[in-house]
Design a protein around this nucleic acid. Structure first.
Lengths: 291, 291
DNA sequence: TCAATTTTGTAATAAAAATTAGATTGCGCA
DNA sequence: TGCGCAATCTAATTTTTATTACAAAATTGA
């Protein structure tokens, strides 16, 4: 209205000056922009869990003298946006304070692109192949910071295949598992700087027993790569020195998507079963299951 | 109503069978899809130079029993379209494996951009502020799939501040912790679809005790957002695709980065410095090499 | 703690919209 | 030419929706 800022931006700018409930509306609007704003006042109010008048007050603060006017503006914006096929996000348009987040994201995007560019396809395929193979047993091992990633991968694999185990607790206890492993086992190791001696030892022992060792690591390659059948390296050096594990997460996500997509035929049945069970169990505990 | 064809397709299919004036409406609708359909009957009628009832008749032929229902369908379509579905388990889509990784990465990049673009800066600041405040105690709570993310955040926070706790085990045991919480506690909740009832209950109880509830969620906003002091929403994926938690991970990473250096200006400047240096050094990242 | 102020929701009201009924127009065909 | 039928519009009606006024609740500051 007043200026040429988009309504979304206007919301962000005003955000701090809004009352708590008005912020709720703002959040819903931004999180589902702009569709949420095209609903009726009552619907939007319901979504945001506030009353109608609160929605109207926010719209008024945004500079519109009627909800209809607000919607018209949204539609006009949308029309322009949908015309040009390449949506221009114009990250640089927001000046000053938003720089940090925006450049953070673009930096990580860049890291992700690098990660992909340097990743041998054969390695990726090999990993997907092994993890999708139901005749293999899967064992997951993570370091201090990568443990969560291992758990995340485990959760997703458990949905689509049996025999997914997570190595936890003290290293000594892993021997029990290790002694039974052979060429029908896959050991997935996560190891990034600073590399962890224990991981190398376990991986070496496993490799000796013909276990298929898969490695998720950073671009400087954990020594585990020497014994790994396949290695996936993510570029993790974040901005300003500290590491970011987001690119590694993307690799994990990509592997999950790869397994799911490639094995879709096989897993779709299993997925429905799992869904049904989960529904009956009433969306159970948040805790990891196996071990 | 009808099948799973998009409304636009439906119009094209029916086009031959339409009366002359109804076709006018159809043309306007297609030419300005779907925005034209989100206007009022009268507005659309005016655009197409027909009367209101003609519009209604077309809508009726499309299989809707009310104009409102038609608009709802349009909005739903639009919602899906605007959030760029990630990986569809469309077997035909996965032709060249090479494409898979590249397009996967670029889609995730896009999701990350969207995430950032929709994120109210005040929310991010508020989260960093609270998590960086050493006078607060921090409690982490994750759902089935987000538990690892909570753990990841926890690991990093522990490095830079005391009093970081992870709520694990059965929900009942959380009561022990909950009873001691107050306005000097921060409860960080991770909750993405499908939302978890337990998380809401805990968050509600916590909020009642004046605990600062922080929420990491997806763009559809967990109900926890109703009681959360600050909400960070990541754009994950479309309903038909596989969810990717990478954008959420990026948010976590960004928050960690923010907490690590509470001084914004320095980060921002440093970031730009690093960028500039990198440009001048021509991509000076270390190549892969043995460890 | 209590009063002042802001925020928020409820419920009544006004406005606008969708829908329907019936009249009118336009068109093909004997 | 004029009858019959489909297509379309006008205008009345009903329903939905936005809006407003006011009361309740929450928050703030002393």
């Amino acid at each position: 209205m007043s200026n040429n800022r988009s309504i979304a931006e206007e919301i962000r700018v005003l955000f701090e000056t809004l009352t708590p409930t008005e912020r709720k509306v703002g959040r819903v609007l931004l999180a589902n922009y702009p569709v949420a704003g095209l609903e009726t006042v009552a619907q939007l109010a319901l979504r945001a869990d506030v009353s109608g008048p609160t929605v109207l007050r926010l719209v008024s603060k945004l500079g519109f003298d009627s909800y209809t006017g607000f919607q018209t503006a949204l539609r006009d914006e949308l029309e322009v946006r949908l015309q040009s096929p390449l949506v221009r996000h114009d990250p640089g348009q927001l000046k000053g304070e938003n720089d940090f987040l925006v450049s953070y994201a673009s930096r990580i995007s860049q890291l992700m692109q690098e990660t992909i560019a340097h990743l041998p396809r054969a390695e990726f395929d090999g990993v997907v192949e092994l993890l999708g193979d139901r005749k293999q047993r899967v064992w997951l091992l993570g370091g201090r910071l990568t443990e969560p990633l291992a758990a995340y991968l485990g959760h997703h694999l458990k949905v689509v295949r049996p025999e997914v185990n997570h190595l936890r607790g003290v290293p000594a206890s892993w021997a029990d598992s290790l002694v039974d492993m052979g060429k029908h086992d896959v050991l997935v190791v996560f190891d990034i700087r600073r590399y962890w001696e224990g991981a190398l030892q376990v991986a070496e022992m496993a490799a000796q027993r013909k276990v298929n060792v898969l490695l998720f690591t950073d671009q400087w390659l954990s020594p585990v790569s020497r014994v790994a059948r396949h290695t996936l390296a993510a570029h993790t050096a974040g901005p300003s020195g500290w590491d970011s594990n987001t690119p590694l997460m993307m690799l994990v996500d990509a592997v999950i998507a790869g397994v799911n997509t490639r094995r879709w035929g096989e897993i779709s049945d299993r997925l429905q079963e799992v869904e049904a069970m989960r529904a009956r169990l009433g969306e159970g505990l948040p805790k990891e299951g196996g071990g």
